[in-house]
Simulated assay, not measured.
Amino acid sequence: MNHPGSILRAALLLLLLTGAHRLKAQETDKVIGSIGNMELRQSEVLESLGRLDDADKAALTSDPATLNKLVRSILVQRLVFHEAVQKKWDEEPSIQPLLKSTREAAITDSYLKTLCKPPGNYPDEAELRAAYESSRAALTVPRSFRLAQIFIGEQQGSDQKLHAVRQRLRENPALFGTVARESSEEKESASRDGEIGWLTESQIQPEILAQLPKLRVNVISDPVRLKDGWHILKVLDVREAFTPIFDQVRLQLTQRLRAEKTRANMQAYMTGMLQKHPVAVNEVALSKLLLAPSPELSKKDL
């Protein structure tokens, strides 16, 4: 028979080991961002990325600024969610139908995707090669520019501010980052010395794109006037259009083909379900549905 003291010591040891394991997991799972007293960890960001399609993942990979925006968006959403739960918004009668339909949709989508997932060896090498050859045009990455800017909005005194900024840059172009931090009114890029990040030609407004071929790397443009104000640009780097080699897009092609196969399998599964369980709709009742008074209106009328 175990002595009570030995049982207690074993329980304490188990608690210590569990706590150490959790601490080790937290050390590995780094904090990516925080808002108030809430933290967003690496695993949570990866989970969010797992719900994106291939095109969005590719955009995030090529532009760290976009990933930064995603993290900020998740943190703000979490803050608002926390406030809503604190105020028991999830218990409001009006929100219950939405919660029910959202839950049903999430369960249904997850079930179907798991059920219709293609085998682990799909696609094979030949299918990947064929997809690469047929997708060359779509895979081509257009010419891209890594840009920085100083933005001055349209407001009273903007002309004087624009003149002062241009004067500082004429005197010392190397101060572009400093001037962006101090004077640019687009705060997110200003915090990075004005850097916007990589943009393809199709992502750049035509008025700005027209100026870029005239600029060499690290040369500062004349102010470009758009509807929102003045943009002073600096080209930090240029990437010419190119088509990635097969190995560079193998993973992207695999994910795309597997997603397409999953969708096709889901469609086939649903078609089979409908053949076994035909849908019946009361057309007469349906035609009168929108003419019926809403429950809220009926209550008010009583």
Rank of each mutant, 00 (worst) to 15 (best):
S6L: 10
R9K: 12
L12M: 07
T18I: 03
A20F: 12
A20H: 11
A25M: 09
E27V: 02
E27D: 03
E27L: 13
T28I: 15
K30R: 14
I35D: 07
G36A: 06
E39C: 02
R41D: 12
S43A: 12
E44R: 04
L46W: 02
E47I: 00
S48W: 02
S48F: 03
S48T: 03
L49G: 03
L49Y: 08
A55Q: 04
K57F: 05
K57G: 08
A58V: 00
A58K: 01
A58P: 01
A59C: 02
A59M: 14
S62W: 01
D63N: 15
L67R: 09
N68V: 11
K69G: 00
Q77D: 06
R78A: 08
R78I: 02
L79C: 02
V80W: 04
F81H: 02
F81Y: 10
A84E: 03
V85T: 11
Q86V: 07
Q86P: 04
K87Y: 14
K88I: 07
E92C: 10
E92G: 04
P93M: 11
S94M: 15
I95V: 13
Q96R: 13
L99I: 13
S101Y: 13
R103C: 01
A105E: 08
A105F: 09
I107T: 03
T108W: 14
Y111M: 10
L112F: 13
L115N: 11
C116N: 08
P119L: 07
P119S: 02
Y122F: 15
P123R: 10
E127D: 09
L128T: 12
E133T: 14
E133C: 02
A137H: 06
S144T: 11
R146E: 08
R146T: 03
L147Y: 00
L147E: 02
I150R: 09
Q155P: 00
G157Y: 08
S158A: 15
S158G: 09
Q160E: 14
Q160D: 14
L162P: 11
P173R: 04
A174K: 08
F176M: 06
T178E: 10
A180S: 09
S184E: 05
E185D: 06
E185P: 00
K187C: 01
D193E: 15
D193H: 11
E195D: 06
W198Y: 05
W198I: 07
T200R: 13
E201T: 01
S202E: 09
S202R: 14
S202I: 05
Q203S: 09
I204H: 03
I204E: 09
P206D: 02
E207G: 01
A210C: 03
L212M: 09
N218W: 08
D222Y: 04
D222H: 10
D228T: 11
I232G: 07
L233M: 15
R239Q: 13
D247N: 13
Q248S: 12
L251P: 05
Q252F: 08
L253M: 08
R256N: 12
R258A: 04
A259M: 06
K261T: 00
K261Y: 02
T262Q: 15
A268N: 08
Y269Q: 13
Y269G: 02
V279M: 12
A280T: 14
V281W: 05
N282L: 06
E283G: 00
V284N: 10
A285V: 13
L289Y: 15
L290E: 10
P293H: 04
P295G: 06
K299Y: 07
K300C: 06
